[in-house]
Amino acid sequence: MKRTPVPPPEPTDEELDRYILTRYALLGIDVSVLPESDADAPMDLERLLANGRSILRQDVEAANFTIDPQFNLPVPHPAPFVAWTEAEQ
């Protein structure tokens, strides 16, 4: 019998932090040089991760936004036509 999908539990801060650090590591970016938590430093790991978590959670908002796939922006018609010449490459 098929199991009915249920929304998975919202990821914790800790899970998102691991995801963020893994993503940066994958790209070869070392964020471990930042101080762990230092309000006097221009940036620390704590603030960086808090910001990253906020960005990830905003993805949900963006996903929830729908644009009618049948909507198209108006374009100029008939289109102006210019020959593609050798000079233009």
């Binding site: 993503r23 964020v31 603030r47 960086l48 910001n51 990253g52």
Partner: peptide
């Protein structure tokens, strides 16, 4: 820094 790293996420 966050402004420049956020695009990765």
């Amino acid at each position: 820094l966050p402004r420049f790293l956020n695009g990765m996420l």
